[in-house]
Design a protein around this nucleic acid. Sequence first.
DNA 1: ATCGAGTGTTTACATGCGTAATCGAAGTCG
DNA 2: CGACTTCGATTACGCATGTAAACACTCGAT
Lengths: 128, 128
Amino acid sequence: MSRRKDTGERISDAEHAIMEVLWDKNPVSATDVCDAICDERDWSIATVKTLLSRLVQKEAVGTEPDGRKFLYRPLIERSDYVGGESRRLVDRLFGGRAAPLFAQLAESEALTDDDLAEIEALLREMRK
Amino acid sequence: MSRRKDTGERISDAEHAIMEVLWDKNPVSATDVCDAICDERDWSIATVKTLLSRLVQKEAVGTEPDGRKFLYRPLIERSDYVGGESRRLVDRLFGGRAAPLFAQLAESEALTDDDLAEIEALLREMRK
DNA sequence: ATCGAGTGTTTACATGCGTAATCGAAGTCG
DNA sequence: CGACTTCGATTACGCATGTAAACACTCGAT
C-alpha cells in the first residue's frame, strides 16, 4: 500500500514538527497547532503560520475554510513520509541495504532489549 | 563505544558525498576527490574545493601539506557519522525506538530476503 | 626571466530554512 | 460606529547550502 505520491517538495525539519501535530489531531487551526507545540519548540504563532503556509504551498497540507478561519489537515500520510525518509537514509548511508543499518544500530547500542524482542517477533511474523 | 564527539557542526548532503570519497581512499588531494566524483555528481573542481574547505572549517576533515599541495583525510569516522545520522532519524521519526523503524522498512517492502537472513543472523549473534 | 598549469583562498549568488514582524480584512465588544 | 482582536498573507532577514568564478601564488617548462 501507500503509493509513492511524492510531490517532489521536500519537508524541512521545522515543517515536519508541524506535520506531526497535524497527524496527531487531524483538522486543526493554526492556533491549535501553536497550542500544541509553540511552548515545546519555543515558537511564536507567527512562525507556525509561516510554516503552515509553506506546507500548503508544498501541497503537503490542505486547508478548508471554517467560518472566517482555516482548518488544516495533512495531505500526505505519516507512513509515506516516514517510509520515504527511512528509505532515503538507507539509500544514502547503507547502499540501500537495511541489514547494515540494523547492524549499525546494534553496534551503537541503540537497540534496547525491548527492540530486540519486538524485532524478533516481527521476523517470526514475516517468516510465515 | 564511539562516544559522542560531535563537534556540533553538521555535515550537509553535498559535503557527505565528499566524505564518502575520503573514507574510501584515505589521504587524497582535491583533484583526486574530483576525479572520484566530479563526473558522477556533475561538479566542477571549484565545487569540490569549496566543500573541502567547509569540511575543514567544520573540523570534519584535516589537511597535511604534501609538497605544494594538501592532502585531505577524514577526522571523523564513518561509523560515527552513520551512527549519528541513524540515531537522529530514529529519534525524529520513531521516538527513539528502533523497532518501529524496522517495522516501517518491512511494511514498505524495503527489506529483501537477504536483509532478513542477515538480520536474523545478527540477532542470533547478539542473543549470546 | 616568463608563461602556463595546478592549488588553495576569497568572493559570489541564488535558494531554502528558521524565525518573526507587519499589513490588511473581518468580526467583536462597547 | 469605532476601537480592538484575529486571521491569513506579505515581507523581512540572517545563516546554511549548492555551485562556482576570480584571485593569488608557485613550480616547472621554455
